[in-house]
Simulated scan of single mutants.
Amino acid sequence: MDAPITTGLVLVVGIICIVLYPGMDTGQSEQVIGILANDIAAMHPFYYWMMIIFFGGIVGAIISTADSVLLSFSSMVSHDIYGKYINPNATDERKVKVGKFVGIVVVFLLLWIAWNPPGTLYQIFVLKFELLIQVAPCFLLGLYWKRLRATPVFWGMVIGATIAGVMTLTGNNTLYGIHGGIIGLIANFVVCVSGSLMMPVSEDYKKHIHTKTSIHDNGVQM
Rank of each mutant, 00 (worst) to 15 (best):
Trp115Val: 11
Ile215Gln: 04
Ser214Glu: 13
His210Thr: 11
Thr151Asn: 05
Asn188Asp: 15
Arg147Ile: 02
Pro117Glu: 11
Val166Thr: 13
Tyr176Phe: 15
Leu140Thr: 12
Val166Glu: 09
Leu131Trp: 01
Gly119Val: 01
Asn172Ile: 14
Ser214Thr: 15
Met167Asp: 00
Trp145Leu: 09
Thr170Met: 09
Ile186Glu: 01
Leu185Cys: 10
Ile182Lys: 00
Lys212Arg: 12
Gly156Asn: 03
Gly180Tyr: 00
Val153Ile: 13
Asn116Thr: 12
Leu140Phe: 15
Pro118Phe: 07
Gly142Trp: 01
Thr170Phe: 08
Met198Lys: 10
Gly181Pro: 07
Thr174Ala: 12
Leu141Arg: 02
Phe154Arg: 00
Gly181Thr: 05
Leu131Ser: 09
Met198Leu: 14
Gln123Ala: 13
Leu169Ser: 07
Leu141Val: 06
Trp155Thr: 01
Leu121Phe: 13
Asn172Arg: 15
Trp155Ile: 02
Ile183His: 01
Lys206Asn: 09
Ile182Pro: 02
Gly181Gln: 03
Thr174Arg: 10
Ile133Ala: 08
Thr213Cys: 12
Phe139Asp: 05
Lys146Thr: 08
Ile186Gly: 04
Phe125Lys: 05
Leu169Pro: 05
Leu185Tyr: 05
Gly156Lys: 00
Ala150Gly: 02
Ser196Glu: 02
Phe125Pro: 01
Tyr144Ser: 14
His210Trp: 05
Glu203Ala: 13
Leu148Phe: 06
Ser214Pro: 07
Asn172Met: 14
Ile178Cys: 06
His208Met: 14
Ile209Lys: 08
Gly119Phe: 08
Trp115Pro: 00
Ala150Phe: 12
Ser214Asn: 05
Gly165Phe: 11
Cys138Trp: 14
Met198Gly: 08
Glu130Ala: 14
Thr162Ala: 15
Lys146Pro: 00
Trp115Asn: 08
Ala150Ser: 11
Tyr205Asn: 02
Gly142Lys: 01
Leu127Pro: 00
Gly142Thr: 03
Gly195Ser: 00
Gln134Trp: 04
Gly142Ser: 07
Val153Ala: 12
Tyr144Met: 10
Ile183Gly: 04
Phe189Ala: 09
Thr151Ile: 10
Asn116Gly: 04
Lys207Thr: 09
Ile215Asp: 05
Ser202Arg: 03
Arg147Thr: 09
Gly156Ile: 02
Lys128Leu: 12
Trp145Val: 04
Gly180Pro: 06
Lys128Glu: 11
Ile209Gly: 00
Tyr144Thr: 15
Ile159Gly: 04
Gly171Cys: 11
Leu185Ser: 00
His208Ala: 14
Val153Leu: 15
Ala161Phe: 05
Phe154Met: 10
His208Leu: 14
Asn188Gly: 11
Pro137Asn: 04
Ala164Ser: 14
Gly177Ala: 10
Met199Ser: 06
Ser214Gly: 06
Asn172Leu: 14
Met167Phe: 08
Ile186Phe: 10
Leu132Lys: 08
Thr168Asp: 06
His179Tyr: 11
Ala161Ser: 15
His210Arg: 12
Leu132Thr: 12
Leu140Glu: 07
His210Ser: 14
Val191Met: 02
Gly177Arg: 11
Ile186Tyr: 02
Val193Tyr: 06
Ile183Asn: 05
Ser214Arg: 03
Val193Thr: 03
Pro117Trp: 12
Gly119Glu: 00
Val193Ile: 15
Ala187His: 04
Ile159Glu: 08
Leu169Trp: 07
Ile163Ala: 06
Gly177Leu: 08
Gln134Ala: 11
Lys128Ser: 12
Thr151Met: 07
Asn116Trp: 10
Leu197Ile: 10
Glu130His: 13
Thr174Asn: 13
Gly156Trp: 00
Asn116Gln: 10
